[in-house]
Design a protein around this nucleic acid. Structure first.
Lengths: 235, 235
DNA sequence: TACTATACGGAGGCAGTCTCCGGTTAGCAA
DNA sequence: TTGCTAACCGGAGACTGCCTCCGTATAGTA
């Protein structure tokens, strides 16, 4: 039985038994793509790692997808039991894979980064390069929106949070840089543009979208307006 | 029976019945000092106001004190049942006086401002004037720390929050200005110093203290260092 | 002192969290 | 293919928090 013990989950919560502690493991569901082979989270560092069974990996993926949906609708305080139901699994299954809310939030967060980077890698072959960059910026803006909501709820886990944020930023840079270089090389984008400019732009339009009733639509419109201004001017 | 109805408390919470809505009343427990005579919160504007009974006023005061303690230990998500227990009253009593968490947070918040201002008014007679000012700045820093924690949880009530923040800022200015003037008049403090400088200073050291394990001690040390720099230089 | 409007409080319903353990099954060896 | 077993599942149940209801208590006034 790979049930995480109560001691594994305790971290400074008063009253009832403390909530489960987020465990930084070398290979956790959050490290690998949910469907990819993954070692079990509870194995010690020196122990041989055995990948998750196929049904377990499927459940992890379903839980992350359900959590993303629930967090989008209700925020990161969404009911974990509800997430389990949406995923079609029992609460015990949710808690076996994600000992507490923070680990699930982290998993959704990193899955979002991975999806964003996968999208960026796919767009490396898309033509024209400037449209590929714009498509990726759109995905980046959507990601920023979810990042802001989930990032706040990772506040309680200071040690881990900085590491997560740094790693995701690195992933985004590795993905965005080639896309930007392609667009510059095509001559359609001003050559002085830097990736950090685009990341800040995505942040700005995501924040603007948070305040509006039709936030996603507004963010998209603002993004397209801003990108228009980034194009190399003909003549 | 002055029980607030479910409709009075509802405000956009999914799942279960929505939580109680904070009711902005002309005279609520939050307006008056808890022990002071207060009209009942649920009375309409045009109705004659009858002060709370003595036992009711005592319970309000106990609830605010218990809430402050619980919020300091657990944050503004502290269990309301636990706060009622700490106050030695039933949950029904808590909900009769504070229909939802936000009203209780607001009461604790405003009570803190009132306490700060009372402290400032008491210090108007203290000698030397510069030490009186420093004592008040220490209290202001402690207040800012609690303000930041409680202020975040008032985010959900945008209309009321701005009003609360503005009112508390006015109270702080009315209290702090005479203390600063006295210290200036005594010649011990540089004459170009403004109250906003001191408020910003209190904010800065409070924020610094949030990140440290011995936060309160650090904030105090930083405050004293900074105040040293504000003194009029001899010679 | 008697009366009554006001206040109290805690049982109970509901929802969410989280664990435990009997049952199921994926995956491997023979 | 079959049998075995370690890994996995899931949901009942205990517990906590939120919140209301209504019988009881009491503060305050005449």
């Amino acid at each position: 039985m790979n049930q995480t013990s109560p001691a594994e989950r305790n971290q400074g919560k008063e009253g009832r038994a403390a909530p489960k502690e987020a465990k930084p493991n070398a290979a956790t569901p959050n490290e690998a793509k949910p469907e990819e082979v993954a070692a079990r989270p509870s194995a010690g560092e020196g122990e041989a790692r055995r990948p998750l069974r196929a049904d377990a990996a499927r459940n992890v993926a379903r839980l992350i997808a359900a959590a993303r949906e629930a967090f989008a609708e209700h925020g990161s305080d969404a009911s974990l039991d509800d997430i389990a139901r949406r995923a079609g699994v029992g609460p015990g299954t949710l808690y076996r894979h994600f000992p507490n809310r923070a680990t699930l939030v982290e998993a959704v967060y990193l899955d979002g980064v991975r999806t964003l980077c996968d999208e960026g890698n796919r767009l490396l072959d898309a033509e024209p390069p400037v449209d590929a960059l714009v498509d990726w910026l759109r995905a980046l803006t959507a990601y920023v929106t979810t990042k802001r909501g989930l990032g706040k709820s990772l506040l309680g886990s200071v040690d881990n949070r900085d590491q997560i944020f740094r790693r995701s930023h690195e992933m985004i840079e590795r993905t965005g840089a080639p896309l930007l270089d392609r667009a510059k090389a095509s001559g359609a984008i001003r050559p002085d543009l830097e990736l950090m400019d685009l990341i800040r732009l995505a942040n700005a339009v995501a924040i603007a979208g948070e305040q509006a009733p039709d936030g996603a639509e507004l963010s998209n419109r603002l993004l397209l307006l801003a990108v228009d201004g980034l194009r190399t001017r003909a003549g």
